[in-house]
Design a protein around this nucleic acid. Structure first.
Length: 802
RNA sequence: GCCGAAGUGGUGGAAUUGGCAGACGCGCCGGACUCAAAAUCCGGAGAGGUAAUACUCGUGCGGGUUCGACCCCCGCCUUCGGCACCA
């Protein structure tokens, strides 16, 4: 009996798979295809983390199983390699980021190979490769040509630590998502992508997708659709102030108005405003607040009344005061609101602070104590024409009334903002546009792509907010592709999210020099059948890539309106103390160490067995040991396998049951219970006298997707013939997964009092007869009357007595 | 505040078209092997209770529906994740 020497075995099979190109996906468009996808990693300097193999193994299991089921499988890996950590490392150590990237990729790739992932390495991609980002730039130009990329001077989120502008999605809790640095507003001219144009479709099309619910709801939440009404309020200067409201039913309760401090009316009516200087001071002050401070201070409302004119409530005709406050945002709705303190919490707080009138227009609460915001039960009062209606009815009636009067328009608003797409950094895709004094912004012709990054001497970000490229005079100075005149290149680069917004398309056709991918290849491979990735990307990468894909669909470059048919998400692997793994906490586990000591198969098995795939779990060295023990037992079993090409009688049912369980569980992210079923199977193997070849081969097949190396080796050792990778997935016979005889619980008044052994298809009468023979059951029946019997065939028998 | 997910032994977790709660693993206890240990193998256990049975209690808390509830309904509590002055 040979020892189970994992390193030797694993290296052996990894080499064989490589040589035989066992996992190559063919562009043979006649076979059924399957396209599983995992998020490609950022190749950081730290190397692979134990968190990485969890999703990779999960879909590797699916990929391997699909191949055994006869599918042409496209399972691939690549590198999302642009990004700040690499750039920072390059700055610190004076190495070109491209070299840093190359080294990191080398390390990552070796680590992934040692895990035995069945990637088709011939389709590896790298977002920093000019042959790849040529097409990222090409897509940007298409966006630009279609009016979806525009440059705008605006207040952006500026990370004071990274010295870079951030997208809305990258600001988390008022601080920089990446470094935790303070984020302030800063006026900058930025490239923007009109993702808002797709807001409606990004929500609506979720309905047909097989995404886990939390992903859908988080995306919906982020896009933030709301349906309401824009209403015109007149001022005493005869201006029109548009407000947006979702509660037109409460318009009689609007006792004042609030404008955002940036509202244009303030400039326009400067001459009529008595306290203009005071308003300006407030505006400056609110701008200086960081996002963090704004959210922290949001309990305490601030504001200034505009003195000089008033507004008229269009329903009641009352004169009402106009205020400015930073709780009203210029970026949402119209930048102005009608304030209904009786029925909006924020307005109520503001009214209390500044002693403004509060009118109850929906009965049901006590507006002297708090705002009454319930929409379900309230009845409208103090509102002339809509009195007595329910909230919903009143909303509709008032909307109709204001529309007919010509001062109301139904309007849908979204929280989603356009995507800030410029970064003032070196290590990103150059934006392929030039600025010409004659022609404005002009796109490079396709023949000039890729526009490659020039070599610079310093990658340092600048305090002025200019990209490091702005010092590259030679590179910047160019001619206008349109008029041939003197022009400048854009010096900002694209954000990290650009390359990953379409990478799954490139996998379909990696070597194509003429298109990002051929329509034939896309028709065959797309959509991605199953995409697994982190929840942290739900409102970033996942949303961005859906947006790009929809755009590419609109211009006829891709064939599906959605990129991913199914989306799932894995939980994080925490440190042994159940805290997030980090160097500073000293609880980091390196996958290389586990591969060395226990083997890749053990690590894979462990990560799949450890718990619910979708939840985070703490690392446990002991549990790793248990997984290795299981593989050892399988290994030792091979020693005593008897001949036999069919399942033997005592094991037949459990064989079919296990095939069914494992087959189904691999499809539904329940890897832990699939493995538990295989463990139970070998426990059963120990109960019988002999295990034959048919039974052992089936176990190896079922286990193969999780532990591919050791099962390959054992397959060879028992002389099963060929490679396990080339076999066919075992099937179960539905007739044979049912036991002939079951142990049925007999309950008296719902409590289990006995167990009877009974044929699975026995009748109630038979069960009754058997139960009456049971002494213990009789004890509970004697002297009582049976009032009812509930019998569920094969499951339970309950006798109700009185 | 809003949206979402979840609360089960010492521990990671199983089991829901309502049907024997605790599969499988870890840890623990006992035994075998060993001079001994490690490894391996065999056995044991939810809590209370009993000499041992019996029996009672038990899936965050309080109610309800049902022959029967971890599962369904109503009302709470707690934890985690996301969003947050979005009118």
């Amino acid at each position: 009996m040979r020892d189970y020497r994992h390193r030797e075995i694993e290296e052996k099979w990894q080499q064989i798979w490589d040589e035989k190109e066992s996992f190559k996906a063919y562009n043979d468009y006649t076979r059924p295809k399957y396209y599983p996808l995992v998020e490609f990693p950022y190749p950081s300097g730290q190397g692979l983390h134990v968190g990485h193999p969890r999703p990779y193994t999960a879909l590797d299991i699916v990929a391997r199983k699909r191949r055994l089921e006869g599918y042409n499988v496209l399972y691939t890996m690549g590198w999302d390699a642009f990004g700040l950590p690499t750039e920072n490392y390059a700055i610190k150590n004076h190495i070109h980021p491209a070299i840093v990237t190359e080294d990191n990729i080398k390390r990552f790739k070796a680590q992934l190979k040692s895990l035995g992932m069945s990637f088709d390495w011939s389709r590896e991609i790298n977002t920093t490769d000019p042959n790849y980002y040529k097409w990222t730039q090409w897509i940007f130009i298409k966006l630009f040509e279609n009016g979806l990329a525009y440059k705008k001077e605006m207040d952006i989120n500026w990370c004071t630590s990274c010295k870079v502008g951030l997208a809305n999605e990258e600001v988390v809790g008022g601080v920089c998502e990446r470094c935790g640095g303070a984020v302030v507003k800063r006026a900058k001219s930025q490239w923007m992508l009109k993702i808002t144009e797709y807001a409606e479709r990004l929500i609506d099309d979720l309905d047909d997708l097989d995404y886990i619910e939390r992903v859908k709801s988080q995306q919906k939440n982020w896009i933030g659709k709301s349906v309401g009404l824009e209403v015109d309020f007149r001022t005493t200067l005869d201006d029109t102030l548009k407000v947006y409201t979702t509660r037109p039913d409460t318009i009689y309760g609007a006792t004042y108005m609030v404008l955002s401090p940036d509202h244009p009316l303030i400039e326009e009516r400067k001459a009529h405003i008595e306290n203009y200087a005071e308003l300006m001071a407030y505006r400056e002050q609110s701008k200086l607040k960081s996002d963090f401070e704004r959210t922290e201070l949001n309990k305490d409302k601030t504001g200034i009344e505009i003195k000089g004119f008033k507004a008229l409530n269009p329903a009641s005709g009352e004169h009402i005061t106009i205020w400015i406050s930073d709780y009203v945002l210029m970026t949402y709705g119209t930048g102005a609101i009608m304030a209904v303190p009786g029925h909006d919490t924020r307005d109520w707080e503001f009214a209390k602070k500044f002693d403004l009138p509060i009118i109850e227009v929906v009965a049901g609460g006590d507006v002297a104590v708090e705002a009454y915001t319930d929409c379900d039960t309230g009845i409208i009062v103090n509102s002339a024409i809509i009195n007595g209606l329910k909230v919903d009815e009143a909303k509709e009636a008032m909307s109709k009334f204001l529309e007919e009067k010509g001062i109301g328009t139904r309007k849908t608003n979204f929280k989603l903002r356009d995507w800030v797409f410029s970064r003032q950094r070196y290590w990103g895709e150059p934006i392929p546009l030039v600025s010409c004094p004659e022609c404005g912004w002009v796109a490079l012709p396709a023949s000039e792509l890729p526009l490659t990054l020039p070599n610079v001497t310093s990658y340092e970000p600048t305090d002025t907010g200019e990209s490091p490229l702005s010092a590259m005079t030679e590179w910047i100075e160019t001619t206008c592709p349109k008029c041939g005149g003197h022009a400048h290149r854009e010096t900002d680069t694209m954000p990290q999210w650009a390359g990953s917004s379409w990478y799954f398309l490139r996998y379909c056709d990696v070597d194509n020099q003429d298109e990002l991918a051929s329509m034939d290849a896309l028709n065959y491979w797309m959509p991605v059948d199953w995409y697994n990735g982190g929840m942290e990307h739900t409102t970033l990468h996942l949303l961005y890539s859906r947006f790009w894909h929809k755009f590419l669909f609109d211009i006829g470059v891709v064939n599906t309106k959605e990129p991913y048919a199914k989306r799932t998400s894995h939980g994080m692997i925490m440190g042994e103390n159940n805290e997030k793994m980090s160097k500073s906490r000293g609880n980091v586990v390196n996958p290389d160490d586990i591969i060395q000591s226990s083997g890749a198969d053990t690590l894979r098995l462990y990560e799949m067995f450890i718990g619910d795939f979708e939840k985070s779990v703490p690392w446990s060295d002991n549990s790793v040991k248990g997984c290795r023990r299981f593989l050892d037992r399988v290994w030792n079993l091979s020693e005593s396998i008897a001949e036999g090409e069919t399942y033997s009688k005592p094991l037949e049912t459990i064989m079919h049951k296990t095939i069914k369980k494992v087959t189904e569980d691999y499809e539904s992210l329940k890897f832990n219970t699939a493995i538990a079923a295989m463990m139970a199977l070998i426990n059963e193997f120990k109960q019988v006298e002999v295990v034959n070849k048919a039974e052992f081969k089936t176990l190896l097949m079922l286990l193969n997707p999780v532990a591919p190396h050791v099962t390959e080796e054992l397959w060879e050792m028992i002389g099963a013939g060929g490679m396990i990778t080339d076999q066919t997935w075992p099937v179960f016979d539905p007739e044979k997964v049912i036991d002939d005889v079951v142990e049925m619980a007999v309950q008296i008044n719902g409590k289990v009092r006995g167990i009877i052994s009974i044929p699975v298809d026995a009748t109630q009468d038979e069960a009754h007869a058997l139960a009456m023979e049971d002494e213990k059951i009789m004890q509970f029946i004697t002297g009582k009357t049976i009032v009812k019997e509930v019998f569920v065939p094969g499951k339970i028998f309950n006798i109700v007595v009185k």
